[in-house]
Design a protein around this nucleic acid. Sequence first.
DNA 1: TCCCAGGCCTTGC
DNA 2: GCAAGGCATGGG
Length: 272
Amino acid sequence: MVTVTKEHFSPGQILASGQCFRMEEVKEGIWELVAGDRYLKIEETEEEHVFRFHCGEEELRDFWAPYFDLEGDYGAYKKRIDPADAYLVRAADFGRGIRILKQDLWEMIVTFIISQQNNIRRIRRIVQLLSETYGKKCVSGEGKVYDSFPGPGELARATEADLRACNLGYRSRYIRKTVEMVLGGEVDLKALEGMDYPAARAELMRLSGVGGKVADCICLFALHHLEAFPVDTHIKKVLDEQYPEGFPFERYAGFQGVLQQYIFYYVLHGRP
DNA sequence: TCCCAGGCCTTGC
DNA sequence: GCAAGGCATGGG
């Protein structure tokens, strides 16, 4: 068990920001999450900004701190927001505890192919079902049993019909093809990790079922390219309504993706 | 019954 | 090159 003291960090807001789909609030102030084949429990404490992570010092340093981007200076991002942009100021303040996670690349590829033309609750259910069906049963140090997210080899066991049985619908064919492309070495996940944003985005779009928006989500939530700015149906509406002259991307060069998450969360959970 | 959800692919021009 | 349909499923 480790104590973590951090500002601009709220597990509840990260959960509700819809970037990870295998995190849940099991009781008030207690969250559990599975990332790849790892499990973590986090508890809020009486003290503001202080949390208990149910893991060792080493695992915190080597895995969970990078995963939650705990070294990132989100206060600095907020300070660079144009004070005259009332909408963005409100959104950033409302989502002040959000961080951009560094999640597993393969998991994000599959998850965000599933996400298209779908709603967040249903995405969670499908990802959970996929993990139960094709992942591995694991046990945490404290005895919690959970299902890892299935890797390409494990998902290869699923036929298109099997995937349809997991409620993937027409996305089943995309997943099948994507699994084949990755297993066949047509797209190299290792190489993707080393690419810059434009190269990674273009390479990801070669995968079946991955267009610009999904590629941007993968770039943002797995590869941590903070310049990626996924435009989905919600964001498009905000851009049309709040930024008819265009969103000032140049002003926020290098961290537009952080602002995108503030806006997305504000649209879903904020007051109009 | 219709509309929408963190869109993408295929077709037709 | 681009606009228009089609696509699974579930909730409001």
